[in-house]
């Protein structure tokens, strides 16, 4: 099956600033793809290139097997799009706004709109201008989902949603994915998409720094151990252990970052007289933040 999204050498410059430097991305069909990165990484730029709102400086983007630059309308028919900052017509009610977009798209079943509005507890009789930010965002989500698109492209979809609605959104994403749609969603934080994403790509300064499945990332979970010795810390011995990624010494305590099994560490340090071992729980977020903040390659699993 063809990729839902395939870009090759996709590059975008804005008057001198390079927003995206030669992106090569493949999103498998039917997957939920989390597109992550810090502010200014190029997430929105990528999404606007995929939806045909921006023209690439060079390179190509294919969506559902169609070249975006040459066949934008066919792409736009099959895509559901939520902009990073969704804005509807403030003088229309939610219902009127969705009726209008449904008329332009054609082939929208109104019962689907009602179902989605129900799920989000959205009052379609209220004018968009009078809705809170989060409730406007729900209207944006409904218009993206309502025509049951083959590909959903959602730019920071959960902004403004309360935790209950975030959970509702994630379950909708799961349902769309199970019925065969591909979901491409951007976010700043891994924990937000961890539960639904099959694959995540991490973008930094316009470059892809990592593409991985969630299990692959989990394998990279690191732990922090503080090991206090009776005498001096055998720093060189600790550094020689492959699973120990980082060693910082303060007095008689070694602050270790451990990736993978602790077996060899325990065996090695025992003869040196260990007074205390303290472990700190860590999660995927820590792995992930490394990609954001560190210039060098993050830890690898030994």
């Amino acid at each position: 099956m063809e990729a839902a999204v395939r870009t090759s050498g996709l590059r975008k410059e804005f008057r001198g600033t390079v927003a995206l430097q030669g992106l090569d991305l493949v999103v498998p069909p039917g997957s939920v793809f989390g597109y992550l990165g810090p502010n200014g990484a190029g997430k929105t730029t990528t999404i606007r290139l995929l939806t045909g709102l921006l023209r690439p400086t060079s390179g190509t983007a294919e969506v559902l097997g169609l070249d975006v630059a040459s066949r934008p309308d066919e792409v736009q028919r099959r895509v559901g799009y939520l902009p990073g900052r969704f804005v509807g017509y403030p003088d229309l009610t939610g219902g009127e706004y969705l009726r209008y977009l449904a008329a332009l798209r054609g082939g929208v079943e109104w019962s689907e709109v009602d179902r989605l509005a129900d799920r989000f507890e959205l009052d379609l009789a209220r004018r968009l201008g009078t809705l809170s930010h989060g409730n406007q965002q729900k209207v944006g989500l409904v218009q993206a989902f309502m025509h049951r698109p083959d590909l959903l492209v959602l730019d920071e979809p959960t902004t403004g949603l309360d935790p209950i609605m975030q959970a509702e959104f994630l379950s909708l994403v799961g349902e769309a994915s199970r019925s065969g749609a591909t979901v491409f969603l951007s976010s700043h934080i891994l924990s937000e998409v961890e539960a639904v994403a099959d694959t995540v790509a991490i973008l930094r300064e316009g470059e892809l720094v990592r593409t991985a499945t969630i299990p692959e990332l989990r394998a990279q979970v690191v732990r922090r151990w503080d090991v206090t010795f009776v005498h001096e810390v055998p720093a060189d011995v600790l550094r020689a252990i492959p699973q120990v990624a980082e060693v910082r010494v303060r007095d008689r305590t070694a602050h270790l970052v451990l990736a993978g099994s602790a077996e060899e560490l325990l065996r090695t340090v025992a003869p040196y007289g260990v007074e205390n071992v303290e472990t700190h729980e860590t999660d995927l977020t820590e792995v992930f933040l490394r990609y954001y903040t560190h210039e060098e390659e993050p830890w690898r699993v030994a």
Binding site: E74, Q76, P83, F86, R105
Partner: peptide, 14 residues
């Protein structure tokens, strides 16, 4: 400038 054009353009209409 209002930001409503985005969604309008990402429709099958040319």
């Amino acid at each position: 400038e209002d930001g409503t054009l985005d969604v309008l353009l990402v429709t099958p209409l040319s």
